[in-house]
Amino acid sequence: MEENIEQLTEQKETSPKFREGVLASLPIFIGYIPVAITFGLLAKSTGLTLLETFLFSALVFAGASQFMALQLIQGGAEPVQIIIATLIMNFRHFLMSSHLSTIFPIKEKPWLIPFLSFGVTDESFAYFSTSKHHRSADFILGLEYSAYTSWVGGTIIGYLFGNILPPILQASMGIALYALFVALLIPEAKKSLSITLTAIIGGVTHSFLSWLGIFSSGWNIIMAILIAASVSTWITGEKEENE
């Protein structure tokens, strides 16, 4: 009985948190739509069926690697090559989840780990790592799965109706993903010079490695992230002892 009461009061407290998470996801929700529509469009022109396109977004839920996979499928790559390239590309999520595991409230609800971690994307990560209003699992789930709905929904819309859009608009939407990253980064960069520098080192290192062209793009981004974060940790070493 006591347990029942506890569960009831918990529900009363947590369900508004879920709604708050959904509301907080609105910018990501809107930002995803042009990117997802572009993915749906490209998947169709690559020759995927509607079901395959839907499963891509619903099961993989990782924008950059989905675009990469389309390119590789079109180029006739072997499935194994595509899967290895995806592993390398998405290994950055390992770094992101490592950070989030220090701030997510998972100790009380370990059974939620698969659901919370499935929703970790570049965008949700950027939100969680830069905002402090997420110390509840319901808030996190609300934000992640609202973004998920937008990604999957946008993919289907793009597949079915993307061709209606004028070609110049279809091309312009290619910038949306990057504008989304910028909008997530800048508010943080304004707060601290060391964060700005870290981002610049990350961008410059990645550009340099891409220009070199020695490693695959998946490795390039992993090395760029590791180098930028290490350099910043090392430079600021003694200064920010209190943080």
Partner: peptide, 18 residues
Amino acid sequence: KKFLRYIPPAALGALIFP
């Protein structure tokens, strides 16, 4: 922990450029 804290801006910078 500190290193992990610098992962977000490093990742975003590398995702944006090039």
